[in-house]
Each structure stands twice: as structure tokens, then as C-alpha cells.
């Protein structure tokens, strides 16, 4: 069987997860390669989660949070972006393509944006090809 990417999406409960829900209600389709993990807030995302996913062979990790000023927990998304930038730097140094990880702000009313972001992320990962770490870390 041809290679199909495996994408992990870590979505914040209040915005991106709701956006994913809305994408479904509005019948927007997005690639079946997407697997969503729900967290309460993008500030809950430990860099280790992303690293673990990549090490276990995920081809891409997408983190979705609320827009600035919209965080249900006031400022979790600011903490998320700080950690994310550091992680991205570390991954680049380790030789992982930085495009394998992405952070995006998608609100609960942006079902269409969610579907589009997923489609674009899937396409980008297909360009990059399989995760070189797959099958042994």
C-alpha cells in the first residue's frame, strides 16, 4: 500500500477542537490522515508531546490554539508560542524539517479555516515525505 502520512493534531478544547467540530457540522472535508488529541489549552502542550509523536513516527504534528486575546485561560496561547518557537529551533538543530510541526490559531467559529489548514498541512507533509525517524528512534 502506498504511504499515507499520519498527522497528529493537538487541539485546544475551546477553539481549535470546536473549530474541528464545526468543520464537521458544516460538512467541510479534510484529510483522513488527521488524528486529533484534545487538550484543554494550547498552554498544556508540552514540547515532549510533539517530540514523542515525531519519535513514534508521526509524519507531522499540528498544534491548534485560540487567537491571542481569546484564550479561555487568558494567556495559555502566549505560553504555547514561546515553547513552540524553542522546540522548532531545537528540532531544526536535530535535523528534523521544521515544517513537520506547525502552530496555528483557529477559533471555534473557523470550521472552514480548520479544514483548509488540515488540507494544507497534509499537502505539505506529503511533499516532505515520510518521517525519517519512523521505524526506529
Amino acid at each position: 500500500m502506498a504511504w499515507e502520512p499520519r498527522l497528529i493534531v493537538i487541539a485546544c478544547h475551546w477553539c481549535t477542537y470546536a473549530g474541528a467540530d464545526l468543520a464537521g457540522s458544516l460538512r467541510y472535508s479534510y484529510p483522513p490522515t488527521v488524528h486529533i488529541v484534545r487538550v484543554p489549552c494550547s498552554g498544556r502542550v508540552e514540547p515532549e508531546f510533539i517530540a514523542e509523536a515525531l519519535m513514534r513516527g508521526a509524519d507531522g504534528v499540528f498544534v491548534g490554539g485560540c487567537h491571542f486575546g481569546d484564550c479561555h485561560y487568558k494567556e495559555g496561547n502566549y505560553k504555547a508560542i514561546r515553547r513552540f518557537k524553542l522546540l522548532k529551533k531545537a528540532l531544526t538543530d536535530l535535523g528534523v524539517e521544521p515544517d513537520r510541526v506547525q502552530l496555528e490559531w483557529i477559533s471555534g467559529s473557523e470550521g472552514k479555516k480548520f479544514a483548509e489548514a488540515m488540507t494544507a498541512f497534509d499537502a505539505r507533509i506529503r511533499e516532505l515525505g515520510p518521517n525519517p525517524m519512523k521505524g526506529g528512534a
Binding site: 484543554p40 498544556r44 508540552e46 479561555h72 485561560y73 495559555g76
Partner: peptide
């Protein structure tokens, strides 16, 4: 309030 910021830090 249960945001989890502390746990991940």
C-alpha cells in the same frame, strides 16, 4: 481553572 499551563512547565 484547569488550563494545565503549570503541569506542562
Amino acid at each position: 481553572a484547569g488550563c494545565g499551563v503549570c503541569a506542562s512547565a
